[in-house]
């Protein structure tokens, strides 16, 4: 008799733990915010764009001219990586400039391009500096649809989904990836020096931040 009692206690203990496991694991999953995912596009990016500089000034130190190009956030915006050559047209003359710096401000992005010119600084000041941003990718690239990029911070960022091994299957975390150098054609963003290895979090009902644990199945 006693033996039966003990055996049933033992069995019910294990069943209880099993039940608790199911409940706890499920509940934990349910508490996590649900995210939608999307993958980067694989496509050729090609831009062909002209932008007029907002202002141009002479940098005394390096004895070069620096033009400032300003891009709105929601405008066609494309930014070449620092050190990239840009073809400029100044008063119908072509020059080659070098991207010196990229600044991300709250409402717009600024690209500073330096170039040498034979014109005087006076002439330059009044001249119209046109930059031709010309880019065609020579391979299939991983393009991020622009609607997934968040511009509320400087630099803009995307949220990627990082998968890690957890006790019951995989656990998913939000990864904040800043986009510093990128080229955009208004629809897609082509990040420079960055490989998007994880799926992109396209949307979520709740606010997200870096390191947050999320779930991908309802």
């Amino acid at each position: 008799m006693k033996r039966r009692v003990l055996i049933s206690v033992l069995v019910s203990f294990f069943l209880l733990i099993g039940l608790i496991t199911l409940v706890v694991v499920r509940k934990e999953q349910d508490k996590l915010p649900l995210v939608e995912l999307d993958l980067p596009r694989t496509d050729f990016l090609s831009i062909n764009y002209e932008k007029e500089a907002m202002e141009t000034y002479l940098d005394e130190m390096t004895d070069t001219f620096v033009s400032l190009f300003q891009f709105d956030k929601d405008e066609y915006s494309y930014l070449f990586p620092v050190g990239e050559k840009v073809s400029l047209e100044i008063q119908e003359r072509s020059e080659t400039g070098l991207v010196q710096e990229i600044r991300h401000e709250a409402a717009y992005d600024e690209v500073l391009v330096s170039f040498k010119s034979s014109l005087s600084d006076e002439g330059i000041k009044n001249a119209k500096v046109l930059a031709k941003f010309d880019f065609t990718s020579n391979s299939l690239d991983r393009l991020i649809p622009l609607e997934y990029v968040h511009f509320d911070d400087v630099p803009p960022y995307v949220f990627l989904l990082r998968r890690e091994k957890g006790p019951w299957g995989y656990e998913y975390y939000v990864e904040h990836v800043s986009l510093t150098d990128y080229i955009s054609d208004g629809q897609y963003l082509y990040p420079q020096n960055l490989e998007i290895k994880h799926p992109i979090i396209s949307s979520c009902d709740e606010p997200l931040w870096d390191g947050l644990k999320v779930r991908i199945y309802p």
């Binding site: 608790i20 496991t21 706890v24 694991v25 934990e28 957890g166 006790p167 019951w168």
Partner: peptide
């Protein structure tokens, strides 16, 4: 009784 403990 967190999932990790239960898994172990």
């Amino acid at each position: 009784m967190n999932p990790t403990y239960l898994r172990m």
